[in-house]
Nucleic acid binder design. Structure first.
Lengths: 111, 111
DNA sequence: CTAACACTGAAGTCGATGCTTCACTAATTC
DNA sequence: GAATTAGTGAAGCATCGACTTCAGTGTTAG
């Protein structure tokens, strides 16, 4: 995927997880798959609200859903988590590389 | 720290990184420390806006700032990243534990 | 001493967004 | 086949949040 595309993907993942209700949904689904109403119950919000959150989570690659009969089953998807891990990893390595160079500089005997 | 406290910390970190401008600031600072105006330039927003973002990033433990004379120098802070990594790690392990149990179940010779 | 600089604080604007209600469709159950 | 169940779609509302302007404060340079 190109830079712009993965950038947009990072945007979607962070935006999706920026909301505490959506994080709660992800936390639920990492424990077990659930139906839309199964998610709505503990969250104390309407089915409609949950469905709206699910759309955003699905676009971000954090959740996968499948409708069978009248029930939509929602499962965790690892792609979104991978995006998150990669972003954090990049920040960490950039930072460490810089601190290493600083270490080299301070270790210089002269100049 | 208690559960409620770390929960609030997770909230702050995800909220902070949910905004693309704040992620851009973190990306800048992982490369090198910068002043407030040094950050504002490339972002094409006012100093005031940057200062507001910095407050949020600092509360989330993603950035550390220090004012010397009239210049505020902003640096990366790893505590926020650690919170993020821990959250992702927990989701991954919960998920894997579940899939392992499912594997055991499917491997059952009977019942 | 004055001018430019780097930033701060208060206050307001305006679009984004999380949630609701209401009306509806489709699948089950009795 | 009537009633219940599970979810969808459109529309509206109210709050939040990112950004700006403007009016300052303290700091450094000429």
């Amino acid at each position: 995927m190109n830079v712009a595309g993965s950038q947009a993907q990072v945007d979607r993942v962070f935006h999706a997880l920026g909301d505490p209700t959506r994080r709660a949904i992800v936390e639920q689904l990492s424990e077990a798959p659930r139906s839309v109403s199964g998610l709505a119950g503990p969250l104390r919000i309407t089915l409609t609200a949950v469905a709206q959150h699910l759309q955003i989570l699905e676009d971000a690659g954090l959740v996968r859903t499948e409708k069978t009969g009248r029930v939509r089953t929602c499962r965790m998807e690892t792609a979104g988590l991978a995006v998150l891990e990669q972003w954090v990893g990049q920040r960490r390595t950039t930072l460490e590389r810089r601190l290493d160079r600083l270490g080299d500089f301070l270790a210089e005997p002269d100049q």
